[in-house]
Computed example of a mutant assay.
Amino acid sequence: MSGNRKIRQFHRVVSMIFMATVVFTAVALTVNSSIVWVSYVPLLPLFVLMGTGIFMWFRPRRRARTA
């Protein structure tokens, strides 16, 4: 597996984790609104997504040239 594919796969996995934390946060805030710190839980995967997304944006794609 090349480095570019590993980064893309890692980005996909972190995006699934991010969605799970967003759903968890929404449910936790509707059940008990006194726990405000729960709203900060999705920030860690969001910053990781931002970092990998910026990395993929600026990394040039290597396309195979044909003929």
Rank of each mutant, 00 (worst) to 15 (best):
V31N: 08
L49P: 01
L49Q: 10
T30F: 07
K6A: 12
V48S: 05
S15P: 00
T30I: 08
F47H: 02
P60D: 12
M56D: 03
P60G: 11
V23T: 15
R12N: 14
S33D: 07
S34P: 00
V27G: 01
V48P: 00
M50V: 11
L46R: 00
V41M: 13
G3R: 01
Q9V: 14
V23H: 07
R5D: 12
L44T: 06
N4F: 06
F10Y: 11
R65W: 00
G53E: 03
L43G: 01
A26I: 09
T66R: 10
I7R: 06
H11G: 06
R12V: 04
V23G: 08
A20F: 14
G53A: 03
S15E: 14
R5C: 04
S33R: 10
R61L: 12
I17M: 14
R8T: 12
L46S: 11
R59N: 06
P45F: 06
M1E: 11
A26Q: 02
R5L: 13
V48H: 02
F47K: 02
L43C: 04
A26G: 10
T66Q: 07
R63L: 13
G53P: 01
L44V: 13
M16V: 15
V41P: 03
F58L: 04
S2Y: 05
V31H: 02
R12E: 11
N4C: 03
F58A: 01
I17R: 05
V14N: 08
R62L: 04
S34F: 07
L44R: 00
S33Y: 02
A67D: 13
I35C: 10
V14F: 08
R59I: 03
S15A: 15
A26N: 04
L49C: 10
S2A: 06
A64K: 10
T52E: 03
V27K: 02
M50R: 00
S2F: 05
S34R: 11
F18A: 13
P45M: 06
K6T: 11
R62Y: 02
N32R: 12
T21Q: 07
I54N: 05
N32W: 07
F18T: 09
T21S: 14
V36K: 09
L43R: 01
S39C: 09
V23P: 04
R62P: 02
V36G: 02
G51W: 06
R12D: 12
V23M: 15
L46E: 06
R8H: 05
R59H: 04
N32G: 01
T25K: 02
S34M: 07
S39M: 12
N4R: 14
I17E: 05
I35Q: 14
L43S: 01
L46M: 14
A26V: 12
S34I: 08
S2V: 02
A64S: 07
T25D: 08
V23W: 10
A20I: 15
F58E: 05
V14P: 01
A28K: 13
V22W: 08
A26L: 13
R12W: 11
S15M: 15
W57D: 01
V22G: 08
N32L: 03
M16Q: 05
S33E: 09
G51L: 06
R63M: 08
S34G: 03
M50T: 12
T21I: 06
V38Y: 10
M19G: 15
R62D: 06
N32S: 09
Y40F: 15
F47A: 13
A26E: 02
I7S: 04
H11W: 08
V14D: 05
P42C: 11
T21A: 10
